[in-house]
């Protein structure tokens, strides 16, 4: 507990001191273990310019256990469920205690840039992504316009 608090404190001050251009992160209320982050959709992807809000639930065992993620902005993506949950294996597979929340957000941005249709949470979207890329791009852009402002 002591480790995680100290570390989260440090991470949030680091992010506030030198804010990255493509994401923001802040603590919800007084609870260091609940974060709210926004990731701006990467360029040259259908999510370009979208603001995606993410809730991060950080376990007490952090950084030895990865945080849990949930998108609060609706998004059209093969690896993100319609209720916003992301497969926990995304982070737990190669998790290392040296990775920071900022690295988690980087992973998410990469996921937006390159969806992985091989391990989908939304099978239909994955099929569309594989077979009809244009329709997928169009749908994703529409969602992005409608919800991610």
């Amino acid at each position: 507990m002591a480790t995680s608090n100290k570390r989260l404190q440090k991470e949030i001050t680091d992010i506030l001191k030198t804010p990255p251009t493509w994401c923001t992160a802040q603590v919800v209320g007084d609870n260091l273990h609940k974060w709210k982050a926004t990731v701006i959709g990467p360029e040259n992807s259908p999510y370009e310019k979208g603001n995606f809000e993410i809730e991060l639930d950080i376990p007490v065992d952090y950084p030895f256990k990865p945080p849990a993620l949930k998108f609060t902005t609706k998004i059209y993506h093969p690896n993100i469920k319609s209720d916003g949950t992301v497969c926990s294996e995304l982070l737990s597979q190669n998790w290392s205690p040296q990775l920071k929340i900022f690295d988690v957000l980087t992973t998410i941005r990469l996921l937006l840039q390159e969806p992985n249709p091989e391990s989908p949470l939304e099978v239909e979207i994955a099929q569309q992504f594989k077979n009809d890329r244009n329709a997928f791009n169009k749908a994703a852009k529409e969602y992005c316009k409608k919800y991610a402002k």
Partner: peptide
């Protein structure tokens, strides 16, 4: 040295 995990 600074521990890469807890930054202490």
């Amino acid at each position: 040295h600074t521990c890469p995990i807890c930054y202490c």
